[in-house]
Design a binder for these strands. Structure first.
Lengths: 206, 206
DNA sequence: TGTACATCAGTGAACGCGCGTTCACTGATGTAC
DNA sequence: TGTACATCAGTGAACGCGCGTTCACTGATGTAC
């Protein structure tokens, strides 16, 4: 057993990266603790030095996903005026993220991780991503994690429609080519048009 | 082995009912082929006389869910004028269904069943529920299952926002009491207001 | 500067588990003549 | 009306599987004196 077999120092990060890779390429069913350990070249039991159990490892991966969404929102929202164009941009980015990481996106909202929704890391990452949207709609500093999402109806509604759209898209409920940017853009634009202008426009006696 | 042990005649229905019960009460993780067989009082292998495999059994359960949604839509849409009030009503009913059957709702869109999306029974049940909505928005007989959902942007958008909302609700992303009708109604109303009137109203420079 | 020792982060063997599925089988039922 | 027989719908034993987790362990590292 050579010196470098111990205290590799980056096993935790390695586990998360391996988990993300396996999740991306083969889906949640393939994402077992043993598989991830194998990928990193470590005994299954070694994982317990870094995570309480399998669910905690999944939660760390999910938290990473929320952080990516937060980054994307920050880039699209920060310093931008409250125009419909910004919302359209966020919608596109959001859907592109989901299209590029369908399994990660599903995991983020999966019940396999729901026990950790109150876990500091995952909970905070989730709150932050919603908070960025709230602050844009209602003014910087508006977001209070103690409030229910319904207190911020605009932010809540955008999230709802994006979430539904993302899942329909990655679950194959809309016939389209997920890998084509233009297809994803078109989906986002079409639906966000209606969302921004109001579905009543499609009704006879609005 | 008594006479009634053979040709019970309703084993298939029994399996589906048992599966729905287990799913409702204990979730998808508990929903194994062996468990369902046990509930019905039949050998695990007997299930294969009625379903190709576990996934096919799940697909049958999911199809049943779609049929319930179709019924609910039919009741709310049929013969109704194209008014916002009807949309609001459907939204409430849709969310009530998801709130009452969270595990079933999740299964309907789960990847554990996605291999059967093209299965006649499940696929048709799904198409029908979307078709009812399409026919209301675009006129009776408008729906063509061969078209992509994007061809019907209004129906698609309502479905997206309801789907997202339902999942956020049952996945605990909105702080609320799922068992209270008024809470669910309020969630539906708040978000559908924005959806129907247009989110641009919340923007400064709309 | 050495040394004793606590702690950290690994190992690998073992556990029990329930699962989906296959198999050869058999009794009950329905049908053709 | 009987009878031969195909088919249907069960049985129960067995398969191999990979899983999450626990355990006693040990070598490497860092720290106190």
């Amino acid at each position: 057993m050579s010196r470098k077999d111990y205290h590799k120092g980056n096993v935790r990060e390695g586990l998360i990266e391996a988990a993300e890779r396996v999740l991306h390429d083969e889906g949640l069913v393939a994402l077992s603790l043993r598989r991830v350990a194998r990928e990193v070249g470590v005994a299954p039991s070694a994982v317990y030095n870094h995570f309480k159990n399998r669910e905690a490892l999944l939660a760390a991966v999910a938290a990473d996903g929320y952080r990516q969404i937060a980054e994307l929102e920050l880039a699209a929202y920060s310093g931008q005026s409250k125009s419909a164009a910004v919302v359209r941009g966020v919608a596109r980015d959001y859907l592109h993220f989901a299209a590029a990481n369908p399994n990660l996106y599903r995991l983020m909202f999966s019940h396999d991780v729901v026990g950790y929704r109150s876990d500091p890391e995952l909970g905070q990452a989730g709150d932050r991503s919603f908070g960025i949207s709230v602050d844009w709609w209602y003014g910087s500093g508006s977001y209070d994690p103690g409030q229910t999402a319904l207190e911020y109806p605009y932010a809540m509604s955008v999230w709802a429609i994006l979430h539904g759209l993302a899942l329909q898209m990655i679950d194959g409920l809309v016939t389209m080519d997920l890998s084509k940017r233009e297809s994803v853009d078109k989906l986002a634009d079409t639906v966000m048009d209606i969302f921004l202008e109001g579905a009543s426009l499609g009704l006879v006696d609005k």
